[in-house]
Structures are given as structure tokens and as C-alpha cells.
């Protein structure tokens, strides 16, 4: 058994905070399943959305509509949807966290490394990400409660010092 340390005080939450941002262009972004992935509103058609992703390590790029039609703008460089996704990911999590998650060159400044990012085009997990977006939205449809949730004492609302 490894030497044991009980760790930090048990009521300090351990998920780094995310930042407020405008959601009209990119309603959903996450660092999950080894990718920066999310949903980007179409510039032209109001109903249409694109599901875009960048893989950690390989930096493989994918972008398609939620009906799995590939994005026409995606070549060897990120299309405008992936650009928008990365911009919002940067606002949401901070450039450092995004660059570290994607395993970009640590010798380069995170902002610069993200701007210079390119990679091979590969089919992405469009359906999975879109389903996760719907699941995310469904939280806002769940009713609230006034029954006490004592477990929330482990999750005090705080601020970065």
C-alpha cells in the first residue's frame, strides 16, 4: 500500500471552475473522451448545427452537421466551426487547460499553440456528442426542489482566489 495522505480538506470542491461566456454561437463545449468537442451553430441556417471536435494527441479534426453531413469547409486546417469551438473552449476553460488537454507543444504559449493547431481530418463522434448535448440541455428541464440537499455541503460555492 502506498503511503497515505488524507488529502486536502474534505469540503474543497475539485472541479476547476469554468467561465461564463456567450452561448449563441457555440452552445456546448466539453473536454471529454479525449477530445475537445462541442456543438456550433450554423452561420447560415438557423436550425442547423455542426458537431465539431479536435482529438487530444493526434489533433485529428472532425466537423459535420448533426445529420452527419460533412462540413464543406474542413481541409487540412480547422474550418470556421472548429475555430469557433476552440475560441469558446478557451473562454470556457482557459487556454492553458485546453492546450494541456490536447497535449499541444508545451514549449509554445497555449494561445499561440491553439491558433497554430492543425491535424488530419477524420470522421468524428457526431452522434455521441450531439446526444451528450441533448443530455446536457435536459438538466434545464428537470424540476428544482425545496427539499434540503445536505450533500451539497461538500460543494460550497466559492471563487478563485
Amino acid at each position: 500500500m502506498a503511503p497515505h495522505a488524507p488529502g486536502p480538506p474534505s469540503t474543497v470542491p475539485l472541479v476547476p471552475p469554468v467561465h461564463a461566456r456567450k452561448l449563441t454561437k457555440v452552445p456546448y463545449v466539453e473536454l471529454a473522451d479525449g477530445r475537445v468537442q462541442g456543438v456550433v451553430s450554423s452561420g447560415s441556417a438557423g436550425e442547423r448545427v455542426y458537431v465539431s471536435s479536435v482529438s487530444a494527441g493526434s489533433h485529428a479534426l472532425s466537423c459535420a452537421t448533426n445529420n452527419n453531413r460533412p462540413c464543406g469547409g474542413l481541409g487540412g486546417a480547422p474550418c470556421k466551426h472548429i475555430r469557433a469551438l476552440l475560441d469558446e473552449a478557451r473562454r470556457h476553460y482557459g487556454a492553458e487547460r485546453v492546450a494541456a488537454y490536447l497535449r499541444l507543444d508545451p514549449d509554445q504559449a497555449p494561445e499561440a499553440a491553439l491558433s497554430a493547431l492543425s491535424g488530419p481530418v477524420e470522421p468524428g463522434p457526431t452522434g455521441v456528442v450531439f446526444t451528450r448535448f441533448l443530455r446536457y440541455l435536459s438538466y434545464l428541464e428537470l424540476p428544482g426542489t425545496t427539499a434540503p440537499l445536505p450533500e451539497m455541503h461538500w460543494f460550497p460555492a466559492g471563487r478563485a482566489l
Binding site: 452561448l23 440541455l137 438538466y139 434545464l140 426542489t145 425545496t146 440537499l149
Partner: peptide, 8 residues
């Protein structure tokens, strides 16, 4: 009083 939410 509590409500479900999302991270953003």
C-alpha cells in the same frame, strides 16, 4: 431551494 444546472 435548489435547481439542476449545467457547468456554464
Amino acid at each position: 431551494a435548489s435547481a439542476p444546472k449545467v457547468d456554464v
